[in-house]
């Protein structure tokens, strides 16, 4: 397991480095500098500005300096929020975004897996049909459609929850954003769990356990679930990715002051350093999530860590 962990780490780190390098090069390759929006300025002023941002050094030196900054948690200054550094903007928004994403992931797991399990155990029953109907809808409906529709029904017509905002920790405010973000994942997890459990239920080792007279609840808990969880745990990597992208929509839609909103605002305002910092942050979270999911799979399924299956 240790060897497998190290191996996966050795794969993830270069990927991250490639991400940073690509983001850096793209930023430098972009036509026009970040100061083009300003009025025409005398060349010496521009040179001064560029020097103060370190834009006059050779490219590899700039990259190494940027990389060094990243290691110290310094993403550079923001070009549009003149008084803030990118790090400050991240520090300000990250707790909110993390709370939103974490809550959504937790909700998705707590709702999706049991839903799929029950649907599989009562295959073709009404609950199964309901769950699978929901799942199909949840997969075809993107967050930016579900969100407004939920707001329309529960916020506007039924007036049960506030239509926007994150509140000062008021949980009522947080229900709708969290549910919106979690719903597509719930749908996918439910479908995945159902399929996986059904497949395991048909496998010879479960048949053999049944034939030995293992009691139903211990059959499900000890034999079926651990085997069925492998693809589900593996999906948690892509699920985290979906939550990260979905959170952009949710933060914009509900006006939640997280980093997703900074990213979108930065993109609209062409704030190079801000967007670059955010992209690197999101990319590393995604790579980390994938790493954790892979390690989780390996912990459950010894075949993976022995390299027999990927």
């Amino acid at each position: 397991m240790l060897i497998y962990t190290l191996k996966r780490l050795a794969e993830a780190l270069p990927t991250l480095l490639v991400v940073i390098l690509l983001a850096f090069l793209l930023t430098r390759a972009a036509p026009g500098g970040p100061f083009d929006e300003e009025q025409a300025m005398p060349p010496e002023v521009r040179a001064n500005l560029e020097r103060s941002y370190g834009l006059d050094a050779p490219l590899h030196e700039q990259f190494l300096r940027y990389l060094g900054g990243l290691l110290r948690g310094d993403f550079g200054p923001s070009f549009t929020f003149k008084d803030y550094s990118v790090s400050e903007l991240i520090a300000e928004g990250l707790p909110t975004s993390a709370a939103l994403g974490g809550a959504a992931l937790l909700l998705a797991v707590l709702a999706g897996i049991p839903l799929g399990l029950v649907a599989a155990l009562r295959a073709r029953g009404w609950l199964d049909r309901l769950a699978m109907g929901l799942a199909v809808g949840g997969i075809a409906l993107p967050v930016f459609v579900i969100g407004p529709l939920l707001v329309l029904v529960f916020g506007v017509y039924l007036d049960l929850v506030p239509v926007a905002g994150w509140g000062e920790g008021a949980w009522l405010d947080r229900i709708l954003p969290t549910v919106t973000l979690a719903l597509p994942i719930v749908a996918y997890l439910a479908r995945l769990t159902r399929g996986s459990v059904l497949e395991v239920l048909q496998s010879p080792f479960v048949m053999a356990a049944k034939a030995r007279g293992v009691a139903r609840h211990s059959l499900i808990l000890r034999h079926v679930l651990p085997a069925a969880m492998v693809p589900v745990i593996g999906y948690l990597g892509p699920a985290s990715a979906a939550i990260l992208t979905g959170s952009l929509v949710v933060e914009i839609l509900f006006g939640i002051p997280g980093i997703g909103r900074h990213l979108v605002m930065g993109a609209l305002n062409r704030d190079y350093t801000l967007v670059m910092g955010m992209v690197i942050l999101y990319a590393s979270s995604m790579i980390l999530a994938n790493l954790v999911a892979d390690l989780g799979c390996a912990a459950v399924d010894p075949r993976i860590r022995l390299g027999r299956r990927r």
């Binding site: 794969e11 993830a12 270069p14 990927t15 490639v18 991400v19 690509l22 983001a23 793209l26 930023t27 390759a29 972009a30 990715a241 990260l244 992208t245 990213l263 979108v264 930065g266 993109a267 062409r270 704030d271 190079y272 967007v275 670059m276 955010m278 992209v279 999101y282 990319a283 995604m286 790579i287 994938n290």
Partner: peptide, 17 residues
Amino acid sequence: VLFAMPTLFFVILLTTL
């Protein structure tokens, strides 16, 4: 390698730049 990359965020970066 590209598969492990968050392409959507790169698209956002590209549309910014």
